[in-house]
Every structure is written in structure tokens, then in C-alpha cells.
Computed example of a mutant assay.
Amino acid sequence: MDDNEIPDNNPLENLVDGITTLATGIPAPLRKNFWKAVGQLCTAAVDVPVSYFEGQSALRRANTESRVQLIKRISDDMTDKISVPEIYSDLAIEKHASKIIRFQGNLDQITHQAANIIITNDSITDDIDEISEEWLNEFEQNAQTKSSDEMRLIFSRLLAGEISQPGSFSIRTIKTLSEFDQNIALKFRNLCSLCITIKDNEKVIAGNIPYFDSLDTYLKTLSRYEISYEDLILLNEAGMITADFHTKISYGSSVINSVEKLPVRFFYNNKRYLLEPIAKNGSYDDDILNLLGISLTSSGKELYNLVDIVENFDFSKDLNYYMNSKGLNIIEI
């Protein structure tokens, strides 16, 4: 085979074919956003349909070719002005090219995974805003460096969420996530397994990790849930949780009471719950449902829905015991 010949099983070609095939399953309201993201993030081999962005593919190729020529001219000028052995300049070019290819491969894989996620999303609305170029620019710069399967999956969920509902994730959250590594991601997942949240549709508007006894025993209790004080410091520095242990969330509105307005669901372990008095016409003190604890930051709330939460059975047991001791049952709905 000639060195310049592309093999039949070329992985890039297969990936491009895969994205094009997946795009046919993207819900109609999201296709414009999807192709806009593909046009910026994916390899130039992907042709964005003319029906969505007339002339954009040609412009992208023209820009790419112009950059190649410009880089070549700069490289030639530098070689002329700086006396560098040819072997070093060749190695530098090869290393830079390898880096570009690796970064592009990460973006292609993330976009491909995002397409798969969007296809399975059954909560698409018809009124979708356009995804912003500033957001895509920031996403591209940070996602391209992610090579681990775990981090690429998180970034693909981030992209799928923003394509489906622009504005779901802030640029600050992208920057926060860019500082993640597998260790921080694992600790954040462990923390989210203890988090009780209140949501508006799918957006987390409040979330904390409550304590059921006293602040004095809080850290000791968290260690039983495999969360250390060092973990809290790391997650606070990563921008996921606040440093305040006294953030209050009231769950009084989640108690089923036929006389008053409909109760507000709370979420734990990816399930929806309400509170029901154990005794008929039983009473309870509202203060007992004002639970204090560590709170998620704005970025932490946005990223909460991207995490694969694994139930912490010790915490679940303690949560049920606390509510039962206050005359309430936790009811899954």
C-alpha cells in the first residue's frame, strides 16, 4: 500500500460516517445547533449540510487551507532567520502535528458521544435557542485536551445538554470542568451520592449534603460515607461546593398535605420523593425540615446532572431513620 493511501478501515472516515448517520436521528428542533457544533468541533472532513449553514463548509475549508499556507510561510521564514538543524525542525513539526491530531480526535469522539446522548433524549421542546459561538469556542479549547474515557463522557454530556437547551451550562462551568481530572471527578460523584436537590424541570435550583445530628459530628459522619475533610477542601478549591457548612434547605414544602398546595418534589439518588406523615393527621415541626449542610455552587448544580450517581446505602439508611424519627415517611413517586 502507498504511504499516502487511506486504508478502507480508516478510523477518521468511520467516525465521520458515524456522526453523519447519527445526525439523521437528531430531533428536528436540535439539528441546527447540532450541525453548528459539528461544524466547529469536528474534523474538516465533515460537511455541514448546506440547508443549515449555506457556504459554511466551504468557508471552513478555505480558512483551513489559508492557515496551512500561513503556517508554512511562517515556518519557512523562521527557518531562514534562525539557524536550526533540520532534524530539530522536523521533530518540532511532527510533535506539533501529533498534538493537533490528538486534540482533534478527542473533539470528534466527544461530539460522536454527544450525538448518541441527544438521540435518546425524549424531553425535547420545539422552542430551542441557538447555541452561542462564544460557548462553543470555550468548549473547544477545554474539551480538546480530555483523553480519558471518563472525562470525554462528562464533556459529551455537557455538549449534548447545551445543544438541547442552550444556557444550561455557563462558560464558568466549562472552565471549572476543565480543571477536573479523574480523581476530582470521582470525589464529586461520591459527594453527589449524598446530595439532596430541589429542581425546576431538570435544572437544580438547590442542593446540599445535610447533617442529621450536629456540626460537631458532621465531618466524622461524612468520613463514614467515604468523604474526607481533604476531599471537601479539594472540591471547594475546584469550585464545586461552598465553604459554608450552614447552608439551609427547607423540605417542609415536600410534605404531602391535602389541605395546602401541591407538595414540591425533592430528588435523591436520581429518584423523586415526597414526605408523608406516618400518623394520620400527624403533626411535625417545620424546623426539623430545615436541614443544614454543605451546598453545591452554581457550577456544582449545573454539573450534578452529568454525574453517574451511585447510591450510598449508609446515607440512605440515615436519611430514612431521621425522617421516620420525626414522624415522616419518604415516599418515592
Rank of each mutant, 00 (worst) to 15 (best):
N142L: 05
N14Y: 02
A243P: 00
S147P: 00
I333W: 04
K95W: 04
E260N: 10
I171L: 05
S295P: 00
Y304T: 04
A206S: 15
L235W: 11
Y251Q: 05
I294A: 08
K261W: 01
L262M: 11
Q113T: 07
N290T: 07
E134W: 00
M1V: 08
N320E: 15
V50R: 09
D213A: 03
N270W: 01
L15I: 11
N257L: 06
M323K: 01
E54M: 07
K99N: 10
E134R: 09
V38Q: 10
N4R: 10
N137T: 12
V264F: 03
D216K: 06
R157M: 07
L232K: 01
S123D: 15
M323Y: 11
S57D: 11
Q40C: 02
A58H: 05
F245S: 15
A143W: 03
F313G: 00
Y225L: 00
I330K: 04
C42H: 04
R172K: 13
Y273N: 10
I227A: 03
G25N: 12
S299V: 04
V50A: 11
K99Y: 05
Y251E: 06
F188W: 12
H112G: 01
L215C: 01
T21A: 13
D3R: 10
K199A: 09
L153V: 00
E237G: 05
V84Q: 07
P210S: 08
A143T: 02
D108K: 01
Y52H: 13
K81A: 15
N4A: 02
P263V: 03
L107T: 01
K81Y: 11
N63M: 08
T79Q: 14
I110P: 06
I124F: 03
G239T: 06
T173C: 08
D286N: 13
S228L: 09
S83G: 04
P49T: 06
S132A: 13
E13H: 06
